[in-house]
Amino acid sequence: MNAPAYNFAYLNEQTKRMIRRAILKAIAIPGYQAPFASREMPMPYGWGTGGVQVTASVLTPEDTLKVIDQGADDTTNAVSIRKFFVKTAGVATTEKTEEASVIQTRHRIPETPLTEDQILVFQVPIPEPLRFLEPRETETRTMHALEEYGVMHVKLYEDIAQYGEIATTYAYPARVAERYVFDPSPIPKFDNPKLDGCPALQLFGAGREKRIYAVPPYTRVKSLDFEDHPFEVQRWDQSCALCGTRESFLDEIVMDDHGTRMFVCSDTDFCAKTRGER
C-alpha cells in the first residue's frame, strides 16, 4: 500500500470549485447561509472542518496564515490546523495579526483591527441563529425567506423580563446589511462590534452543517437589541495582569485552590504586542 500524494491545500480541484462557488454566492447575499457539499476532512466534524475547507479554498501559496483558537495561537487545535496547512499548502505562518493575510479563528476576533488586505475565516458549529428556537431546518429556512424573525425578538425579550437584560453572552445574533439575522459563531458578544464595518472580508464555514456564509467588507452588522435595552458588551473591573490593557477580552486564570484569580488577555498576540515582547 502506498500513501497517496495530496493536492495543494489538500482538497481536490472539483471540491474547491464547488466551495468557491458557494463562497461567491455567500458574499453576494450577505448573511445568507449558502449550502455546500462539505467533505469529510482528516479532522473531526466540530473541530473546524468548515473553516478548514473555506481556508483551503481561498489560500494561495503566497499567503501568510494565522490560526487562533480562543484568541490564542498556541492552543492545541490551532496548532494542529496550522500544521495541517503548512504540510498541505506549504504556506508561511505567523502569530502576528498584522502580518497575516488569512486568519482562521475559533471563538474570537483579534483585538488588533483588521485591514482590507486580510481575510478572516470563522469556524462555525451551528450556523443557524434560530436553531435553538426551532430545531427544524425546513421551518427556519422559511423564516429566513419571509424575514420572519419575531421568535428571536420574543426570546431576547423574555430574557429581559426574567433577568433584566439579554442573557446571551456569545454567538450573539446580529442582522447583516438589514436583511439576514445571522450567527457570528460562538465569539463572545464583546467581539460583535468588530464585525460591523470591518475592512476585511469575513467568511464563515460550518462543515458538519454544510453551510458557508459571509460578511463582505464595510457591511453593516447590527447586534439585535431593543431601544430601551441597547446592545452592550462585557466589561471587567480588572485590567490584564500581564500587559495592563483594559481594552481586551480577558480570560480568568485560576491560580490556586483558595479562589485566587488573575485576568489576562485572551488574544495572546495582542497581549505580547502591548507588552512590547515581540
Binding site: E40, P44, Y45, G46, W47, T49, D69, Q70, G71, T75, T76, N77, R106, H107, R108, P125, A167, T169, Y170, A171, P186, I187, P188, K189, F190, R208, Q234, W236, F249, L250, D251, E252, S266
Partner: peptide
C-alpha cells in the same frame, strides 16, 4: 456517527472564552 462523534467530542476543545462570558453574566 462521524458527524455525531465529532460534535459530541468537540466539547473537549477549549471553550474558555465563552465560559468566561457566561461567568461574567
Amino acid at each position: 456517527n462521524v458527524q455525531a462523534t465529532g460534535f459530541v467530542e468537540h466539547l473537549k476543545l477549549p471553550h474558555y472564552v465563552d465560559f468566561q462570558a457566561e461567568l461574567v453574566l
